[in-house]
Nucleic acid binder design. Structure first.
Length: 850
RNA sequence: GGGCGUUUAGCUCAGUCGGUAGAGCACCUGCCUUACAAGCAGGGGGUCGGCGGUUCGAGCCCGCCAGCGCCCACCA
């Protein structure tokens, strides 16, 4: 047994216990266990290139409390930690941190030294050099995250870390992709895709967000081909006029019905385009007739596809107008187009408006409006739609049968809180395309694919050259396809690498397979998959959660886990959403320094499951006070209760038994709460009980406990105090791992975090009466109230107390009579049966001297 | 436009069978009491967002409305 400190303190606990936990492998996973004995958690790999913020601490602490509970319940917790370093956020961070840009055509420079800080000019570097910088920076970021996680006491097995760009993740991603391809679940298509003109990459539906943007309706004069007049068409994007391939109205719209099947002529360019009908055309919008461009928005794509219209693309992948207009534009039209060639959409719009004004084909002035515009969630300019060759993965976006199955899996999954399921369902409901998984970026998992080149050096996209399974992971830009040699790269008759990398979610959606060893550890896989729990944030249900279900359905035909907990969002102290641009981001480490890890955890676990929670220093302060109280109360209990053995049979007095009965109810309630992943309820109820335990029970038995240890009633108090302390500490342990471990170490061997979760049954002793503790505490409270009102010390003696109450309560009081009198310094205690409960307190006369 | 959630004390929030409104913080008044003054005891403070309904009885169940937050959506 360790020494109980004279003056217990929280200082240094975190340092000391993290080291001991690490040394002793307290949270080490035992992989010899069977699936039924294991609780496996698919922890979110945090985006390491982002800053550490309170959100990074909030959800992870809640999950850790659940992990700790499961561990104490006897489950062998499989709790790995990953780092999401793959993808655009890292690329951006590297670009900004070093002031570099990746230029894939440049050769590798082995002597390249990265600048310490960005120079005046952006330095262009090769893809391999760029990737080296990515690797270097994420290593630093990962170290910072690990430090915070360890400090916060996350009970992960640090020997089981992974990164989403690491070899295991690359191998898993590539293998899964090749298997998707073999089963026809992955395919490539040359089709219009949403495109970010700054990052020059395709983006998926899941990465879109609408932003309310100013715009304007421009009323354009289209001319009837038969010369019978003009048709006015409203558009917010007049600059795309050159890409117009038709105009469209609703089939039932009588205003335009006569025009269907005829042609109109576009302003400025004089191009004849047909008037077509489609049910998506909204008679209420604009003038009721719209121009269809390839492509102004996603509705254009639908019209283009369903009405089989020609393609007249005008925007390049850089978001600028192409040098040459579509073929149908010639003569004066081509001259007009020359003014916008090479311009951005914004610049071109101004020019077009001037041109339309001069030609008299603009009806009135543009009318400003605000309207939702699609953006890449990390992007700065509106998305354009560009036709390009991309890889897709089937996700139910265009396959009703698969969609129904995914819906079924969503219903099968246990959601906590339950109502989060609707987000999954409404996302699935709104899916309108398969998952675009290729990105024209660099720091990601490459597709393990090459293409045959024909005699003229053109890629034959139908002739895929696939990497062999055992060769994974491969980088097709440096590795050769089976049967080829490097000299044949990009040579006629040879091969060329697929240049793209996978969407970061294409890797993240495989975290269950990555951590459980699907590719190269079948033994581990069998013991841990399907997993038990996916904890995550609400904002990535449509990406991470949904995609993971899709991949598991495609690969295993089953859910990847049985349960998911969706944590709430962290708001800043003023209850605003935290964001870097608002400058209101709070970082956790200084708060850990100030209040302690347990206090920060207390704050996080005070937030109800799934409920948005504001950063609240007051709550952290309360958590710190609680931790200190636990130290002090434990010091007292262990000091006064000596070395009493924990024989519950020695608990003999009615008050002790009554308190243990109440404690048993608490344990049952806490257990039920945790079984439902409700750490907050367990904490709240345990905390409430603990304070009353300190204020009432401890005060009631204090003087008895100081007595002769051989006396049966003294021993009863000692044993009860110890049993209750041991129970309460274990209920606190999932939330307050440091202080509970510290106190545990004063009198117990082994880690509290490896001890058994308490059971209510053991605390129920036959014949215990719940009223005894209740009435004793009530009477003591009444006595205190009088002393407080009279402004005398609580130590002041009381001459007489008369309690009037029901016979049952008076009986209960009688059973605790001695303790109540001792605690209240009461000389005489009288009782009187009565229907109206009251307590009369008569203080002893002052002794005269002070 | 559709949906989910939320609204309870000055603040942050509990309130799980429908049965006399709770906690912490803050504020006020006391108290050095042999674990803890980083403590303890006590006190004031609420038309439970609004309206209507069901019920002997509604913070809780039902309907409508409003504010706030979020999710989804093919708005030229």
């Amino acid at each position: 047994m360790a020494q109980i400190p004279e003056k217990p303190s929280l200082d240094g606990l975190e340092q000391r216990w993290s080291e001991i936990w690490e040394e002793q492998g307290t949270y080490r996973f035992d992989r010899t266990r069977t699936r039924a004995e294991i609780f496996s958690i698919d922890t979110p790999p945090p985006t390491v290139s982002g800053s550490l913020h309170m959100g990074s601490a909030f959800g992870y602490v809640q999950t850790d409390a659940i992990a700790r509970y499961q561990r104490m319940r006897g489950r062998h917790v499989f709790y790995p930690m990953g780092w999401d370093d793959n993808g655009l956020p890292t690329e951006r961070r590297v670009q900004n941190f070093y002031g570099v840009r990746c230029e894939p055509h440049l050769p590798y420079d082995p002597g390249f030294v990265a600048p310490d800080k960005p120079g005046k000019d952006v330095v262009s570097i090769s893809r391999p050099n760029f990737l080296e910088l990515c690797d270097r920076l994420v290593a630093e970021d990962e170290a910072a995250f690990e430090e915070l996680w360890r400090r916060l006491g996350l009970s992960v097995d640090w020997s089981l870390t992974y990164t989403t760009i690491g070899p295991g993740a690359r191998r898993t991603s590539q293998r899964a992709f090749l298997r998707n391809l073999a089963r026809g679940e992955a395919y490539q298509a040359d089709a219009p895709t949403l495109w970010d003109v700054d990052y020059r990459t395709a983006v998926a539906q899941a990465e879109l967000e609408d932003r309310e943007m100013p715009g304007a309706y421009h009323a354009l004069h289209f001319h009837r081909a038969d010369g019978s007049g003009d048709v006015i068409i409203d558009t917010t994007r007049p600059e795309l006029l050159a890409a117009c391939v038709a105009v469209v109205a609703h089939p039932d719209d009588d205003r335009f019905r006569p025009l269907f099947g005829t042609d109109v002529v576009t302003p400025l360019y004089g191009v004849r385009v047909p008037v077509v009908s489609h049910h998506l055309a909204d008679p209420e919008k604009g003038t009721g007739i719209a121009m269809i461009c390839t492509f102004g928005d996603t509705t254009d794509v639908v019209w283009w596809r369903e009405l089989q219209l020609p393609t007249r693309a005008v925007l390049g992948i850089d978001g600028r107008f192409k040098a040459e207009p579509p073929d149908v534009i010639a003569g004066t039209g081509a001259i007009a187009y020359a003014d916008i060639a090479g311009r951005t959409a914004k610049q071109a719009q101004k020019i077009i408006v001037e041109q339309l004004r001069s030609s008299g084909e603009l009806d009135g002035d543009p009318r400003p409006i605000t309207h939702p515009v699609k953006f890449y969630e990390k992007g700065e300019r509106p998305l354009e739609i560009v036709t390009s060759r991309q890889w897709y993965l089937r996700n139910g976006g265009r396959d009703l049968e698969l969609r129904a199955e995914l819906l079924g899996l969503g219903k099968e999954l246990e959601w906590h809180p339950e109502n989060m399921r609707v987000r999954y369902e409404s996302w699935l409901d709104g899916l309108n395309s398969d998952w675009l998984v290729s990105r024209q970026r660099y720091f990601g998992v490459p597709f393990p694919i090459w293409y045959r080149l024909d005699g003229e050096g053109n890629a034959r996209y139908g002739e895929l050259l696939l990497a062999a399974d055992e060769s994974l992971p491969v980088d097709p830009s440096t590795d050769c396809p089976p049967g080829f040699v490097e000299a044949q790269r990009d040579m006629p008759g040879g091969f060329t690498a697929d240049p793209d990398v996978m969407d970061t979610w294409a890797t993240s959606s495989l975290t269950p397979q990555i951590v459980t060893g699907w590719v190269d550890d079948p033994d581990l896989f069998e013991r841990t998959f399907p997993m038990d729990l996916r904890p995550q944030g609400p904002e990535i249900i449509r990406t991470w959660l949904f995609d993971t279900v899709v991949r598991a359905r495609l690969e295993h035909g089953a859910l990847p886990w049985t349960d998911t907990t969706i944590n709430g969002w962290v708001l800043d102290p003023d209850r605003k959403k935290m964001s870097k641009s608002k400058g209101n981001v709070v970082t956790p480490m200084p708060l850990v320094e100030e209040y302690g890890a347990d206090a920060l955890r207390y704050w996080a676990c005070n937030g109800r499951p799934g409920v948005d929670t504001a950063v609240d220093f007051g709550i952290m302060k309360v958590g710190r006070k609680l931790a200190i109280k636990i130290l002090n109360a434990s010091k007292f209990v262990l000091g006064v209760a000596g070395d009493a053995a924990d024989e519950i049979a020695a608990v003999s007095t009615p008050l002790d038994r009554s308190m243990l009965l109440a404690l048993a109810s608490l344990v049952d309630d806490a257990t039920t709460a945790f079984e439902g992943f409700d750490y907050a309820r367990c904490l709240e109820h345990t905390e409430r009980f603990f304070w009353s335990f300190c204020d009432d029970y401890v005060e009631l038995v204090k003087s008895r406990a100081y007595g002769d240890a051989d006396d049966a009633v003294v021993k009863s108090a000692a044993v009860t105090l110890r049993v209750a302390l041991a129970t309460l500490l274990r209920l606190f342990a999932p939330v307050l791992p440091y202080v509970s471990e510290e106190v545990w170490s004063w009198w117990r061997d082994g880690s509290i975090h490896r001890s058994d979760w308490p059971s209510g049954r053991e605390l129920r002793i036959g014949g215990a009466d719940p009223l005894v503790y209740e009435v004793a505490a009530d009477v003591l409270g009444q006595v205190r109230k009088v002393k407080s009102t009279m402004q005398v010390s609580l130590a002041a003696p009381v001459q007489n107390v008369c309690v009037i109450d029901t016979p049952a309560r008076l009986d209960a009081l009688a059973a605790a009579r001695a303790d109540v009198c001792d605690a209240g310094k009461i000389a005489e205690l009288d009782t009187e049966p009565g229907s109206v409960a009251s307590v009369r307190v008569e203080l002893a006369a002052p002794s005269g001297d002070s």
